[in-house]
Amino acid sequence: MSFEQLVFYAFAGISSLAALMMITVRNPVKAALWLVLTFISAAGVWLLAESEFLGLVLILVYVGAVMVLFLFVVMMLDINLAEMKEGFAQYAPVGALVALVVFGLIYLVVGPEHFGLDKTGLPVTHGPDYSNTKEIAVPLYTQHAYAFVLAAVLLLVGIVAAIALTLRRRGPRDALYQDIDAQVRVRAEDRLTMVKMAPEVEPDVSSKNEEEEGAK
């Protein structure tokens, strides 16, 4: 067994186990964390398949940003686990049917008759000079430039729509706003006045002290 095989089985095993845990565990926060583990181990498998760009971007985008936001939402929900369990028996047959249909569809598409070394051949292994990033970048920005730009515009529209949905001007009674530009522009002269004062001279007390001592 080579070291790559060992790493592959470790990542593949963890990823399958974590995916299974993600759908069986009751607590949604824990489910999200198992999903994160699935992503990370899947990224490891991709790295082994010499697609380091995809693997690292999977971690960067999904693990580093998307799932954190997911966790944000899920953590702040007040979920009653007992309520969630209600109606499980009622919906179980329908769920099982849907699961079977989906499994059958997936099996038809990616069943063993389409995959296997005799169908696809051994994957080509590349030397250390091979850069997966460049291999992806060149077709993405030449051949598929139109689709790429289109996807970018779609995402932008999505962002604008999401912000527009949540944006509402609240009156000064509902929320307090600060004019940050005014706060930044403030200078010491606006708030602080330097006052010139004549120095207050202490009355000379040394002679008095001497007198007191003399009296003693």
Partner: peptide, 14 residues
């Protein structure tokens, strides 16, 4: 590694 910057960004985002 070839994607060193990406690796550092990805791992430190975890």
């Amino acid at each position: 590694i070839d994607a060193g910057v990406l690796y550092v960004l990805a791992i430190s985002s975890i």
